[in-house]
Write a protein that binds this DNA or RNA. Structure first.
Lengths: 341, 341
DNA sequence: CTGAAAGCGCTTACAG
DNA sequence: CTGAAAGCGCTTACAG
């Protein structure tokens, strides 16, 4: 049997309450007594029983908040699935999860939802933050009120966060570059369609892509990078333009959203193109099956949602901090045969 | 707050003990009373508190067994890491895990270890079974004694198992075929080095590979399949022979173990070859980085070990059965850029 | 500063 | 067939 608080209490000649206070560094224990208890616990290699802790916690359950700015798109639906799975698991540990979903990137909306969650008395918040001063300020205020904050999928700088859970954008770009090299035998004229040069993640991807090509595939050439603002209509037009401008274009890297528009333009054009995309949406699955998209690189959306909640839970419930702030989900290469019906 | 046994007891006008007996279908509850209780629980959508259940279980903790025939090889070390991680997690739920590691494929050894574990009073067993009649019989006897059995990494037929956790070999072969097609532009003369035609998994891989090529890449040609018995020395020799025999060989698929020998033979040969392997051992990582191996397909060994224990735990502790018996881990495509230093 | 007691939700040996 | 009570390990309001 594992060591319990009761055994420590007996050995130290004190009550279990006192042991609990000492072990959890609560106030009101005479210094020498606390030290004695801590030493005994150390000697016995005491590990608190997580289950008992959780059960005791049920007397005054705490609440954690989630604020996700998904606009009902497929990608974020999977993130939400991960969050809901974690919610289910932590509920039996006496922890509530209050989820707020917002559309778009309206700063004021995000701020007011943060306040709403705070009013609910949350002890922790998982958020896809908008990169905005006012949001950053609001998050720092939460931290000052002892509310633990973690970001997921998107990140901002300048806040005290427990963790970020999401994609390593730079690496995902490197993988895209390496894979493009492998699939084209290192000889290709590549057109790139990105979301926005104002998005940090998108830029990191491009840099990773370029770096992988420079390092490993000198025979590859990047013709031009065009922006589609993650918008399918714009994506269609600028991709069409790109194809018109470069008759030699033989490969297409769609580095962000607007995949539908870009791929459709390529299909209309008709020439044989090696197409590489990100994420595994239903549209991408379909085009993988048709052999139009050669491969896609997925960032594990389910896992992003699931992990950020578990990390916050472990922090608030057990005082555990993750080993590193940056918690990257895998960049998974998916081809047609990887799909399960 | 969630519904508790106490509330149900009050509503049904009985004690909590009786509610517990009825809900868990224990004997000794009058039929009408049991039905009343079950109905109330249903109406209230009662979900037992997993944590409380686990804590109560600590009074007479149960033991589960693991029997893994790893021979200290790198692949199985990762499986073991997953098992140990799960072990840590379930220990605070009052569940012990007794792990036995054996080398090679000695049936008698495996049988005697099964008996050893049974003598420890295990309630469940996770095993990498040898495909042998005596083993199958022994496992069926365990099941008859109410010991839940699950297989992982390797499977056998003819046993009553809770689940199998491991690779979908057929699919991993399909992915290999599809990826080989993408990397060679659909034009390649492929040599295949497999482990043993006596291993079900290896054969399934070959079939998957062939099927993907037939379906998608008519321009690809399989020259010959050679066996290396997962042995590096033999692997070196038969790969050398294969290369000598087919000067046109331009791609190599190493479908099982003995990767080191096969790749070395290809390096000595010196011609440009697209090499595809399975699993992510340190050697494979090195050769990916050097650009010698183009890609490898990993079967998530950590996850195999972790999941099989969690599945057994959920079964024994909460009576949950997994949705399907076959629980496949992902077949993950890894290229040089996927590696983290 | 410390202890005794009650409680989290479920289970079980004991008594009737 | 059923209930009252004790217990799993940790926490906390209350009393002193």
């Amino acid at each position: 049997m594992a060591v319990t608080i009761k055994q420590i209490a007996e050995m130290a000649g004190v009550s279990r309450g006192t042991v609990d206070r000492a072990l959890n560094h609560r106030s009101g224990v005479k210094k020498e007594v606390a030290e004695r208890i801590l030493r005994i616990a150390e000697d016995l290699n005491y590990r608190p029983n997580a289950v008992a802790k959780a059960l005791a916690n049920c007397r005054r359950p705490f609440v954690m908040g989630v604020l996700i700015n998904s606009d009902g798109n497929d990608f974020f639906d999977e993130v939400l699935d991960g969050i809901r799975r974690a919610k289910k698991e932590i509920e039996s540990f006496g922890v509530k999860l209050s989820i707020r979903v917002m559309k778009g990137f309206d700063v004021n909306r995000q701020l007011s939802l943060i306040r709403e969650l705070e009013a609910e008395g949350i002890s922790a918040l998982a958020i896809t933050p908008i990169d905005d001063r006012a949001v950053i300020r609001a998050l720092n205020e939460l931290t000052q009120r002892e509310i633990t904050v973690a970001t997921f999928n998107a990140d901002v700088e300048g806040i005290q966060k427990l963790a970020f859970v999401g994609c390593d954008y730079r690496k995902s770009g490197e993988i895209a570059g390496g894979l493009m090299g492998l699939m084209t035998g290192g000889n290709a004229a590549v057109g790139i369609v990105t979301g926005s040069v104002k998005m940090l993640g998108h830029n990191l991807r491009l840099r990773g892509f370029e770096s992988a090509i420079k390092t490993g595939y000198p025979g590859m050439d990047i013709l031009e990078v065009v922006e589609n603002n993650d918008d399918n209509e714009l994506s269609y037009h600028c991709t069409t333009e790109l194809l018109r401008k470069f008759p030699q274009l033989s490969a297409l890297y769609v580095a962000a959203g607007g995949v539908h528009g870009a791929v459709e333009a390529a299909e209309v054009d008709g020439r044989k193109i090696t197409i590489l995309t990100h994420d595994e949406t239903p549209y991408v699955r379909r085009k993988l099956k048709e052999g139009v998209i050669c491969a896609t690189i997925d960032q594990q959306p389910f896992s992003q949602g699931y992990s950020v909640i578990r990390l916050l839970f472990d922090a608030v419930m057990y005082g555990k901090r993750p080993k590193q702030v940056q918690n990257y989900t895998k960049n998974e290469i998916i081809i047609r045969q990887s799909l399960t019906e």
